[in-house]
Structures are given as C-alpha cells and as structure tokens.
Amino acid sequence: MQTIDLRGISCPTNFVKAKLALEDLDDGTAANILLDDGEPVKNVPRSLKADGHKLLGLKQSDEGHYILEIQKVEE
C-alpha cells in the first residue's frame, strides 16, 4: 500500500499535498497517510471525507504520529 507521509507539514499544506498525492492513485486504491498529532489529525481526515474519499481507520504509531487509512473515491 502506498504511504503518503505528511509528518512535519502544517495545515492546510498537508491537506493540499494529500490531494495532490491522491490524484496519482487509481479510483478505489487504499493508502496510508501519516499525520502528526494535534491540528493535522483533527483537520485532514475530515477534509478528505468532505472531498468524498472513504476513511477506513486511524491508528497511532509507537512514535506518536497517526496512520490514517483511506480509500480513494473518484468524484
């Protein structure tokens, strides 16, 4: 599965980067998005949901960042 690493990138740049990365994926493909705790993990998932993508799950890694599993949904 493709990993989109958005750690260390602040809002809303992280969301725009996620959008650009998702553009390269085929419809229905799943990807892991790595997000920092705090604002990023609060904002990015809901923005991606509002864009129509499917959120599959959220896990916290041992290092403290979050792994958001998402499935690309083409509009």
């Binding site: 993990v41 609060k42 998932p45 809901r46 959120l55 599959l56 799950g57 959220l58 979050y66």
Partner: peptide, 12 residues
C-alpha cells in the same frame, strides 16, 4: 460505528 477512533481524536 467501525471503532476507528477519529471522533474521539477530533473532539477538542
């Protein structure tokens, strides 16, 4: 609910 935990994380 699929127990993803996103809501708990989002609730400031």
């Amino acid at each position: 609910c699929i127990s993803c935990g996103l809501c708990v994380k989002s609730c400031v």
